[in-house]
Each structure stands twice: as structure tokens, then as C-alpha cells.
Simulated assay, not measured.
Amino acid sequence: MSSKRNVRSTDTTDAQKANSTPRFEQPLSDDQIWTMLQTAVNSTRIIPIVEGDWKSSTRSYESREDAACALIFDLSFYADYRFSQVRRLFKQTAMRDVFTDTEISDIVEEAYILQDGRSYPTFT
């Protein structure tokens, strides 16, 4: 994957700056995100990818790269599309060697655009 932008902020995309939408009141911690992923309704799809066993996911992926991309989409959604947090979380998984930091950032940006900036609600 090549970089889609010349200048990249660590935690926002150009689309986020232009189309600001309500986000989390406070960012979720890494631990909160891992807990949410483990208890999510679709955890049987996500957790095998986190563990590197993407073939046993409940969703069929054609390649390891497709599964890693799906994981980055999920992490992005929970991390409110913060590049630095998504990269950090992804590097804690067994899929960590699939993409470079730049590729991860490109996928996070793509996720933001495709999800139209939607985020999970704030839990109080």
C-alpha cells in the first residue's frame, strides 16, 4: 500500500478535520478496547485473528492480509480512528508483522472514510 496523503497527523485524518462528528467524550484505554473486543458479539470473528489463527475465524478471509485488515478496521472503530493507538494495539497481536506503520495508517484512514466516521457510543 502506498501513502494516500503527503502529510499525516498521528491521530486525525483530513476527513476527520473536515467532517467533524461527535466522538467519544474520552478515548478508551487499550485495556478497555481489549475487553470490548473480547466480549463483543462478534468476538468469535475477531479474537482468532488477534491470536494469529485467522483461518478459524467465524468469517472466511481469503488471505492473512485480509484478516489483518479486518482487525485494523475493528481496532480503528473502538480506538476512535486514532492512528497511534491502533498501531500500538495491532503490534500487540500475532498479526503484527503483516503491515508497516504507514500501511496501518492508510487502513485506519480507509476505515474512517468507509465507516463515515461512525463510532461506538460513550459509556458513562
Rank of each mutant, 00 (worst) to 15 (best):
Y120T: 01
Q115W: 14
I113T: 08
N6I: 09
F73R: 09
C69F: 03
N6Q: 11
L89A: 00
T10L: 11
T12I: 15
K4P: 04
R87L: 07
E110N: 05
A94E: 11
C69Y: 08
F90P: 04
E103D: 06
V86W: 09
A68L: 02
R96E: 05
I49W: 10
G52W: 13
I107Q: 04
T124A: 10
E25C: 01
M1P: 03
M36P: 03
I104A: 07
G52T: 01
T93S: 15
R8A: 02
S105D: 15
D66K: 09
R118L: 10
K91S: 10
R23F: 15
P121N: 07
A40F: 01
S60T: 11
A111M: 05
A67V: 06
D101I: 13
V50E: 15
S2A: 03
Q32C: 00
T12H: 15
D116K: 14
T39K: 12
F77E: 01
Y120L: 02
S29Q: 02
F99S: 02
M1N: 05
T39D: 03
Q32I: 00
Q38W: 08
G52V: 09
R87A: 14
F123W: 13
R23E: 11
S43F: 07
L28S: 06
Y78I: 01
Q16V: 09
T21M: 15
D11M: 10
A67D: 01
Y112V: 04
D66A: 08
S2M: 03
W54A: 05
R5A: 08
L71K: 11
A111W: 05
Y61S: 02
G117L: 15
D11I: 13
A18I: 15
D116S: 14
Q92Y: 07
L37P: 01
Q92G: 02
I104F: 01
G52N: 11
N19M: 07
D106C: 07
A94C: 00
R45N: 14
R118H: 09
N42I: 00
D53N: 13
T10H: 12
S119R: 10
R64Q: 08
R118P: 04
N19D: 15
I72Q: 07
N42P: 02
V50S: 08
F77A: 03
A79V: 14
I47N: 08
S57Q: 05
A111E: 10
A68M: 05
T124S: 12
S119K: 06
D66E: 10
F24W: 04
Y61Q: 05
L89C: 02
S84Q: 10
I47F: 09
E103I: 04
R8C: 07
I49S: 11
A70L: 05
D106K: 07
S60Y: 00
A40L: 00
S84F: 09
L114W: 12
D106F: 14
L71M: 06
Q16M: 15
N42T: 07
T39Q: 12
F77Q: 01
K55T: 04
T21S: 10
A67G: 00
E51R: 14
V86P: 06
S76Q: 08
M95W: 01
I49M: 04
S119E: 05
I107W: 05
P22H: 07
P48Q: 13
K91W: 06
Q85F: 09
T21L: 14
R82M: 13
E110W: 09
P121W: 06
Y61L: 06
A94G: 04
A18Y: 08
E110A: 08
